[in-house]
Design a protein around this nucleic acid. Sequence first.
DNA 1: AATCAATGTTATGTTTTCTAACATGGAATT
DNA 2: AATTCCATGTTAGAAAACATAACATTGATT
Lengths: 134, 134
Amino acid sequence: MSSSNIRRSMPLFSIGIVMQLTELSARQIRYYEEHQLITPMRTDGNRRLFSLNDIDRLLEIKDLLEQGVNLAGIKKLLFVNQVEQVPNEPIQKSEEIKKDLSDGELRKLLKSELLHGGRHRTTLRQGDMSRFFH
Amino acid sequence: MSSSNIRRSMPLFSIGIVMQLTELSARQIRYYEEHQLITPMRTDGNRRLFSLNDIDRLLEIKDLLEQGVNLAGIKKLLFVNQVEQVPNEPIQKSEEIKKDLSDGELRKLLKSELLHGGRHRTTLRQGDMSRFFH
DNA sequence: AATCAATGTTATGTTTTCTAACATGGAATT
DNA sequence: AATTCCATGTTAGAAAACATAACATTGATT
């Protein structure tokens, strides 16, 4: 897991913000979760918290729906993207230990990642973002 | 206003998330706002929404407080940072029109900025972020 | 001892989000 | 044409998160 991926998978956004950013209704977002197209984190009080990756995926879902793909198809598409991507990932150095980090360490790391911002992209579906520039 | 600055000034985060990221109490955050060290946006329902810049500033406030600077001093410091930084900004091209954008256009832009991620930094206090890597 | 700055704590009200149920419109199927 | 199904809207009621405001506390300064 690259630092960028860590940053992009941080649960940060309430559903209200995600609604604005994606222009999806709460109903739609929850429905997609219900069908396991996204799996946002939850707070202790059971509120959803979305990551940048979640938002990314929601926008892709929206895009595919507008192209006529149904949820079943989208689910498959998202899934093949994941499995076909794994082999392309460079073998990670042993430095990048995946071993359990303490909560404190993780929080510190995530903080610095977030605030340092992303300078290199390791996104799966590269080029997809072009559709936001119309 | 660079695209990065737009992205970093987007009101996105609830106070709960900001508490976690900064390890400040709600009381502290509100107190700093009360003394006009930050001015987070509000939702229609009056909930605070913080930007990355707000979080950045909160962390700087926290840092300065730990160094013994009081709020009055911090206020001055933040202010001189702002005024001394303006001349360093390159003159913006006339392409970068500041004219009013429609809400829709702005939202699209912000969305793409957010999701595209920051690749170049135009931060004011550069180097400050190093303190997050201990 | 009194004051002040920064923060904690508590009370009370409002906003946001939650789940669950039912409704609807359009497409596909029978 | 009637039915079914998918995706979404709408509503109700409960709980979480957040708002302001007031009072308490702690440590430093006067």
